[in-house]
C-alpha cells in the first residue's frame, strides 16, 4: 500500500515507510527485510533544490545526489560536499538517490541484508558480522553493530557543520547529533528529513573527497575522507576533515585538522597529520587491514585540498 502526500506536513502525518529515490528501500523491500506501507514523497512540494536558508544554504531532502554534485552554490561554498556527491555509487544511482535518502539509508552489511538470518540490527541477539565475516567492517568498534555507516554525504556534510531539518521539529538538529555517536543501534533512524542546511562559508573554500575502493568505480568505500579548508596567503586558516567507511557513524578528524590549522601549508606536514587519523582505532581481527588504508586516504585528500595542483 502506498500514499503520495503533497506536503511535508502531510507526509509527516501519514503512516508508512518513507520513500524518496528508493535506491536503498527497493532493495530492502525486494529482499523482504523491510515490510510495510509506503509514504512516497514523489508529490511533496518544496523538498527539492538548493536555495538560501536561515543558516546559509538549504538543500531540500529530495534534491538528487546528482543535482547536489553540480549545484553552483554547493560547488563554490562546499566543494567537498559536491565532490562527494559526484563520487559516490553510479551515475544512475546518483540520478535517483536523494540527499535525505543517502543520509537515511540502512547499513550495507551482508548479514543485515540477508533475509535468511536475523542480525542484531534486525532483532537478533548478536551481531553476526562480529563473530563471522567482517572484512569490510568498522575499525573503530564503537557499538554493538560493526557495520560502517553507509552515507558518503554524511561524511562530507560533517566538514561543513550541516544541520538537519526534520518534519515536525522546531529546531534544526546538528548532523553529528542526529547521527549519534555510534554506541547504540539507532543512527538517525527513519526520521522524515525535510532539508539539510549548510552554514555560510567565507570565500575561497577548497575541498577534497577521496574514497579507497576495491575497483575503479561503483564500489562501497573501504575508507572515505572529506576535507574542507580555506587557505589565505599560504596559511591554512580553516580546515575540517571527516572519515567514513570505518565506524558505525562517520567520524570527524579533529586531530588531523588541528595539526594543520593556523600553519603555513607545508607538504611535509601532511603525512604526519594524516597519520593521526588512526588514533583510537580498535579494529576487529578481520578488519585490521583497513587501518593501513587510512593514512594514505587521508593524505591523498589533504594533498588534493591544500596543495596547488592537488595530490603529488
Amino acid at each position: 500500500m502506498i500514499v503520495f502526500p503533497r506536503s511535508a506536513s502531510e507526509a509527516a502525518a501519514a503512516a508508512g515507510i518513507v520513500r524518496a529515490g528508493g535506491t536503498d528501500l527497493q532493495e530492502r523491500l525486494h529482499k523482504g527485510i523491510t515490510k510495510g506501507d509506503l509514504r512516497d514523497l514523489r508529490d511533496v512540494v518544496g523538498m527539492s533544490g538548493v536555495g538560501p536558508g536561515p543558516a546559509g544554504l538549504r538543500v531540500g531532502a529530495r534534491t538528487t545526489v546528482a543535482q547536489l554534485a553540480v549545484d553552483p552554490s554547493i560547488v563554490r561554498d562546499h566543494p567537498a560536499v559536491a565532490l562527494a556527491a559526484g563520487g559516490l555509487a553510479t551515475p544512475q544511482i546518483r540520478a535517483m538517490g536523494t540527499v535525505g535518502g543517502n543520509l537515511s539509508q540502512h547499513v550495507r552489511c551482508a548479514y543485515y541484508r540477508d533475509p535468511h538470518v536475523t542480525c542484531l540490527r534486525r532483532g537478533g541477539s548478536a551481531c553476526l558480522s562480529r563473530a563471522g565475516d567482517h572484512m569490510f567492517a568498522s575499525v573503530f568498534d564503537l557499538g554493538p553493530c560493526v557495520a560502517p555507516h553507509p552515507s558518503t554525504l554524511a561524511t562530507a556534510l560533517l566538514t561543513s557543520g550541516a544541520l538537519i531539518e526534520l518534519a515536525g521539529a522546531d529546531a534544526l538538529v546538528p548532523l553529528d547529533q542526529w547521527l549519534g555517536d555510534g554506541t547504540s543501534l539507532t543512527s538517525g533512524g527513519d526520521d522524515l528529513i525535510v532539508a539539510v542546511h549548510l552554514p555560510s562559508t567565507s570565500p575561497g573554500q577548497v575541498g577534497a573527497y577521496v574514497r579507497t575502493i576495491a575497483r575503479a568505480r561503483a564500489e562501497w568505500p573501504v575508507v572515505e575522507v572529506a576535507v574542507r579548508a580555506r587557505v589565505v596567503d599560504g596559511v591554512v586558516v580553516e580546515i575540517e576533515a571527516a572519515m567514513g567507511g570505518v565506524a558505525p557513524v562517520p567520524i570527524p578528524l579533529p586531530g588531523v585538522a588541528d595539526a594543520l590549522r593556523g600553519r603555513p601549508v607545508d607538504p611535509a606536514a601532511l603525512a604526519p597529520a594524516a597519520g593521526l587519523a588512526t588514533a583510537g582505532a580498535n579494529p576487529l581481527p578481520g578488519s585490521a587491514w583497513k587501518v593501513g588504508m587510512i593514512p594514505g586516504t587521508v593524505l591523498d585528500a589533504l594533498e588534493r585540498a591544500l596543495l596547488p595542483g592537488g595530490a603529488a
Partner: peptide, 27 residues
C-alpha cells in the same frame, strides 16, 4: 541483480537512463 547494482534493467525515462528494477512504476 534486482537491487540497482548491475544496470541490466536500464530503460529510458523521459530520455534519461534509469534502473527499472528499483523504480516504482507509480513514480
Amino acid at each position: 541483480c534486482d537491487v540497482g547494482d548491475c544496470g541490466a534493467c536500464t530503460v529510458l525515462v523521459d530520455g534519461a537512463p534509469q534502473l527499472a528494477c528499483i523504480t516504482l512504476a507509480a513514480e
